[in-house]
Design a protein around this nucleic acid. Structure first.
Length: 308
DNA sequence: GCGACAG
DNA sequence: ATCTTGTCGC
């Protein structure tokens, strides 16, 4: 259940019927930071059934849900904006990619069911955070490999919907997700799941490889090793079936460990790679890195308040 | 049976 | 995901 009041005093729709408590903090900076709120994880999954308990029965419905949503997946560029071309001025009316979002969730060490979901938006030109909102929640759905979305998507989706409901001009034109896109056992990871439910172009960023279709870490490292001259280059993740699941990239020269980029929704792999490279100051692209750092920070602060 | 298994 | 200090380097 939730009822977040905005600066204008509007009340957002109530979502689920779980017990609630909330606390808010508000800060004012150059960037926009929204309210903190505590809530129970929604037991609903945007039109598709999702059970709060995770019995073996859910396993089947989860797979059905993924297969159902997967039919809507668009693995090619499908957006109105375009990338700014350096050295060439653009038409004034032209929509250029400026706001890139990043989402992540951090967990409490003490209470593993307590988590902080976060949404940040960065200006692509400056790579500075221009918007941030987070939500401290209690998760009831466990993490099962291959079903991350059923645990994490509800909170993240809500953060996006709040922003959109307020017609915030900083609403992201593209979202980077901490988790894979089609690089997934059934080709439908968290980034795809979120992309479809939010109807946003999404890119999946994995910090670890989810072995799929014969693609192994040792195999990837082998190929990367063969082209160590090209630190900025990538290795295509082609499975035994011939399918291309994504790419492994050593985004920074100093990082041996690659990140794994895969298509989420409404974007082609090559476009996704270009944009990820544009946002990499370090190994992990800045939208994800900032989401990571900030959500972890909020979890820590929240624990401090609770232990007093 | 054994290993792998995003976050 | 989380548990965890110092340390080497630009």
């Amino acid at each position: 259940m939730k009822a977040i009041s905005q600066s204008k005093g509007s009340i957002l729709p109530v979502i689920s019927g779980a017990p609630e408590s909330h606390k808010r903090t508000a800060r004012l900076c150059a960037l926009q930071i929204r309210n903190t709120h505590m809530e129970e994880q929604s037991h609903e999954q945007a039109s598709i059934e999702t059970s709060p308990s995770s019995s073996s029965l859910d396993h089947k419905t989860w797979i059905e849900t993924q297969d159902f949503l997967k039919k809507k997946l668009i693995a090619e560029d499908d957006f109105t904006w375009r990338l700014a071309v350096t050295g060439r001025s653009m038409e004034k009316e032209e929509e250029v990619l400026k706001y890139v979002g990043g989402v992540d969730i951090s967990y409490s060490k003490e209470d593993p069911s307590m988590a902080c979901g976060i949404l940040v938006v960065l200006d692509l030109q400056t790579l500075q955070v221009v918007y941030e909102d987070f939500s401290i929640v209690t998760l009831h759905v466990p993490y099962l490999p291959g079903f991350l979305a059923f645990r994490e998507a509800p909170v993240l989706l809500e953060l996006l919907e709040n922003m959109k409901a307020n017609a915030n001009p900083l609403y992201p034109q593209l979202l980077m997700v901490d988790g894979n896109g089609i690089l997934h056992p059934r080709g439908f990871g968290l980034a795809c799941h979120l992309g479809i439910l939010a109807n946003l172009p999404t890119v999946g960023i994995g910090k670890n490889l989810h072995h799929v279709d014969g693609v192994t870490l040792s195999g990837v490292m082998q190929l990367l090793k063969a082209k160590e001259d090209y630190a900025q280059d990538f290795v295509t993740l082609k499975g035994c079936s011939g399918r291309i699941w994504g790419v492994a990239v050593r985004s920074t020269g100093g990082s041996l460990k690659p990140i794994f980029i895969s298509v989420g929704h409404r974007i082609a792999l090559d476009t996704a790679i270009r944009i990820v490279k544009m946002t990499c100051k370090f190994r992990v692209p800045e939208p994800i890195r900032q989401a990571d750092i900030r959500s972890r920070d909020y979890v820590r602060k929240h624990q401090m308040r609770m232990s007093k």
